[in-house]
Amino acid sequence: MLRVVRQQGTVTAAAEALHLTPSAVSHHLRELARELKVPLLEPHGRRVRLTPAGRLLIEHADALLARWEEAQAELESYRAGMTGPLRIAGFTTAISGLIAPAAGWLRHSHPGLLVQVRECDTEQSMDLLVAGEVDLAVVEPIEGGPPPDDARFEQSPLLEEPYVMLVPGGHRLAGAVSVRLEDAAAEDWIVADADTCDHAQRVRMLCAAAGFSPRIVHAATHWSAVWSLVGNGLGVSLIPRLAEGPAGQAVARVPVAGENMPTRRILSCMRRGSRRNPLISLGIGALEEAVRHHQSLDDWPRSAA
């Protein structure tokens, strides 16, 4: 509970994440402080924060929990056969491009393994890992997210995903082997809505590095909407290679080349100490197989031109 309070900033938010009442969380934390004979929380504006004693306790708790995950992984290896559940969380394009194919392969190769998939953004995936509600997550680095050496998690690179230019089917760039961002400097641009992800900011930064400011005309909430807008000739977009759109749209995905080919880093993430759990190892292996499959496709960019 103390770890979740630190992460959420209020007892109320922590209680919601833990599916408990605020009074129950407050009671347990008061009892913990009384038992340890040190204050663990202190007011900080409208929120609460850990006292130095609370932070020290968390450091030890992280180490203990990592050892507990290792113990569970060791015990799991003695189980006969592979049974579930294996709970995997990830953001939208990670599910469509990596998690869903991986879950499908596991279903056929290990019929006794129950794979449960949950769509959520990276921040929520981390919260679910901390709360023990998922076992494995596919995430991307985010501002304010946990650093690589965070004691709670083990984060490993899974994929350097390239961005590709999405253009209407009859566009002058549609048949190109590759394009540079500056080739579309005079085009109308379409981006994902700023309230759903940082796509618009990323497009602006990448275009600025290429020497121009994009004329952003349309914003959409989902990749399928971006896809439809491009397919109807309303502009071009820069999309992650894993993003998919509705069938039947007249669009072309063109690899982006250049000295600084735009990419997005995708990570696997689990609670520290749990990697040796055979079910999680199976999940990681299936995700890596999905990565290899995508990288073998003809329209996957190989290198900067």
Rank of each mutant, 00 (worst) to 15 (best):
W68Q: 11
S281H: 15
E160A: 14
I99Y: 03
A151D: 11
E289V: 14
L159M: 07
R253K: 14
G104N: 15
I58A: 02
V256C: 05
G144P: 02
C269R: 04
Q8C: 11
S296L: 07
E133N: 06
G211P: 09
M261E: 12
H110L: 08
Y78I: 01
P39H: 10
L173S: 03
G248N: 13
A209R: 13
I190F: 03
N277S: 14
V134I: 14
S178Y: 05
G245I: 13
E42P: 04
A219K: 14
R271D: 00
S303K: 08
A73C: 06
G90H: 08
E160M: 09
R172Y: 05
V256I: 15
V291M: 05
W68Y: 11
W189R: 06
A15L: 09
E154H: 14
A210I: 04
V291I: 09
R67Q: 12
G84W: 08
D127Y: 12
P278H: 01
P162T: 02
R55S: 03
R6G: 07
R67G: 10
W68L: 11
R271G: 05
L282M: 13
R253Y: 06
A73I: 04
A186W: 03
R180T: 02
L86Q: 02
M82R: 04
A53C: 02
V139G: 03
L129R: 06
V138F: 06
A286G: 08
A250D: 11
H110V: 11
Y78Q: 09
W189L: 05
D121Y: 09
G248M: 13
V138P: 07
D149A: 12
A80E: 14
P301F: 00
H60P: 00
R253H: 10
V164H: 05
T83R: 15
T51F: 00
A73K: 04
R107Y: 14
L267N: 05
G112C: 08
E187P: 01
E35N: 14
V130A: 13
E31Y: 07
P146W: 08
G231K: 00
L229I: 09
H28K: 14
L129H: 03
E161N: 04
G132V: 04
G248H: 13
P146S: 11
R118K: 15
I58F: 01
E119R: 15
G211C: 09
A225M: 15
R49D: 05
A14G: 03
T263F: 12
S281A: 15
A24F: 06
E161G: 06
G285W: 07
L57G: 00
I280C: 09
L65T: 10
C207R: 07
A219S: 15
N277L: 10
R276N: 13
W105R: 15
E16I: 11
Q249S: 15
A247W: 15
Q72D: 08
Q155P: 08
Y163Q: 00
L41W: 10
L75Y: 15
V134A: 04
V139H: 05
P52R: 08
V138N: 04
A71H: 07
M1S: 15
P162E: 02
E69W: 00
E161V: 02
Q295T: 09
E160F: 08
A243C: 11
R275T: 02
M165A: 02
G9L: 02
D135F: 01
S26E: 12
E31P: 03
H199E: 03
A33P: 05
A186G: 03
P214K: 00
T93Y: 00
E74H: 06
L206I: 07
V230E: 07
L64K: 10
I142F: 10
R264K: 13
L159P: 00
